[in-house]
Amino acid sequence: MISHPTAGELIDSVIRFIEERAAPNLKDRDAFHARVAVNALAAVRREIEAGATAEADQIARLGALLETDGDWESLNTLLCERIRDGAISPTDQALLAHLHASIIDQVRIDQPGYAGLKTLEAR
């Protein structure tokens, strides 16, 4: 939408500033927090790129699974209730297929280097 710069370019510029200019002057806890800050910005960047598609895909899957329409929040809440009250079994294949696809999308945004992501992607 907005360009020159895009949100992604702005984030990249801040990441570069922290890594190249700010972090070398920090130590101990502040240096650690600078690394976490870079990770946080990188997650935001990935969320900007992939978040909307992941949410749309979730809404489509939730609609099919729960046989009803709604926005993400109401559908996700309904799913939680159905699992909690036993209407959907935690080992139900359709449920697991939804959870599988959703959590892969989320970990790709949150922590793409996490070993458990490769485990699930390989299945």
Partner: peptide
Amino acid sequence: SVERAMIGRRTSETEIDLVA
């Protein structure tokens, strides 16, 4: 701190292990 904020985004790591 940014560390406390960001640790919330590690919850999904446990969730992917739970799904497996």
